[in-house]
Design a protein around this nucleic acid. Structure first.
Length: 382
RNA sequence: UGGGGCAUAGCCAAGCGGUAAGGCAACGGACUUUGACUCCGUCAUUCCCUAGUUCGAUCCUAGGUGCCCCAG
């Protein structure tokens, strides 16, 4: 434990700045470090055609990332492994992702990617090669208090990525290192700069992890066929437009509805998706972001997961319904080992079934769950 | 084929003789390891067509064309 040179760490190297700096920091600390590059998505084999902006590129983006990762590994004098989890990703993440969309919900694939790929398949693979820990370039902290391991929010609160780690087990957490927890993004880039890493100024990756930025509706059309149907104003019950398939839209969404001005109305409001009915293929919209149709005061959840300690019934905690959202207050209740509910002191907007709700208290991420039903004063809204 | 009304960008819609507001949508960008939200930018040399009046017409006149309403 004191002699870090005897501790073998496998750093997940993505080809971006964050994991490169994480690798460097661990090496500086004296760990016995190697790097692993994961490839989890094969655009051609996975029919990722429509909505894919990089299809025509001379070099596919993953190979560019691999080259970047290799350059980093070489510069830092570390061995780079390459490992392929395309099948595992499809079976454990993407299948779930599609099923959720087909049920009219909005999944968060990256949370499952962490749970099943980065912190499971990759972890097991590294362990099988004799590594003691894996390390990630996430902005998150591992905190040990009284012998218990907790997940702490990153010092860079703007980049904090604990939201995506909310479904991890304590064991997964214990076997992971997060070297960037006390650094800001700016500091990370400065370090990369001082090391003269080519990726120092590389822009942050966005879109689904390992897949990338996509025109989302077109992307889904590769897997879920179009099915036209009506768009109904939830306030008046009038049909005011047509959609291409309720699956393609998410609660709170404005763009993509194609609803222009309506004759006879003296306003031209923005319309937001308020409700999806898969059985009738109807998309319900509300005309104002403040509309009560977008608000909720209670939710139920499934997939309850605690990272370290359980939250007690009736406890007031802070929660997030989406990445980088300002934390808001809620009261926690458990209804079974894996389900429960949250009550809100004031209505919150566009809480979406299928998305993750993540629990926080005093700078620690306590765990999370998957949003199931949303209510406004006991009235079911989804 | 009697009367009345209206025709402005994909949609809604100002302008009513002086050289085309605004909103919605769409698209592009910023933000962003989900989906979203948000923010910024772009978007009618032209006002249904034709002829005329005028220094000048989307705005006036005439004739077309197309819708709508009332009366049949």
């Amino acid at each position: 434990m004191n002699d870090k040179s005897k501790i073998k760490v496998m750093v997940a190297l993505s080809g971006g700045v964050d994991s490169a700096v994480a690798l460097h920091l661990l090496k500086e600390e004296g760990y016995d470090v190697s790097a692993g590059f994961m490839r989890n998505w094969d655009s051609l084999a996975n029919s990722d055609i429509l909505g894919n902006p990089t299809l025509g590129d001379p070099a596919c983006p993953q190979e560019v990332d691999y080259d970047d990762a290799l350059a980093v590994a070489n510069k830092l004098g570390v061995k780079l492994y390459r490992v392929d989890f395309v099948k595992e990703y499809w079976d454990n993440v993407f299948t779930y992702f599609l099923k959720e969309y087909e049920n009219g919900r909005t999944p968060n694939p990256d949370i499952f990617c962490n749970k099943y790929i980065k912190f499971d398949a990759f972890l097991k693979w590294a362990r099988s090669l004799g590594f003691d820990y894996i390390a990630m370039g996430h902005y998150a902290k591992k905190v040990v208090i009284n012998g218990l391991t907790y997940l702490g929010e990153a010092r860079d609160t703007d980049k904090d990525q604990t939201y995506f780690l909310s479904q991890l087990s304590n064991k997964q957490l214990q076997q992971t290192l997060f070297p960037l927890g006390d650094l800001t993004k700016g500091e990370v880039r400065k370090i990369a700069d001082s090391l003269k890493l080519d990726v120092a100024r590389k822009s942050d990756s966005t879109g689904i992890c390992f897949i990338g930025e996509r025109h989302f509706r077109d992307f889904l059309k590769n897997y879920i066929p179009m099915q036209e149907g009506p768009i109904v104003d939830l306030t008046t019950n009038e049909v005011i437009g047509r959609h291409q398939g309720v699956f393609y839209y998410t609660i709170g969404q404005r763009r993509g509805l194609g609803i222009g001005g309506i004759k006879g109305r003296d306003d031209n409001p923005r319309w937001y998706v308020a409700k999806k009915d898969v059985s009738t293929n109807t998309l319900y919209v509300a005309s104002d972001e403040e509309s009560i149709y977008l608000q909720s005061t209670k939710i139920t959840f499934t997939d309850l997961n605690f990272l370290t300690k359980e939250i007690s019934d009736g406890q007031e905690i802070e929660v997030r319904f989406r990445y980088r959202q300002k934390k808001v207050k809620a009261t926690f209740y458990k209804t079974s080992e894996t389900t429960g509910k949250l009550l809100f002191p004031t209505p919150y907007l566009s809480v979406t079934p299928g998305q993750a709700v993540v629990f926080y208290d005093k700078g620690l991420c306590l765990g999370g769950a998957i949003i199931n039903d949303i209510y406004f004063k006991e009235e079911k809204r989804n």
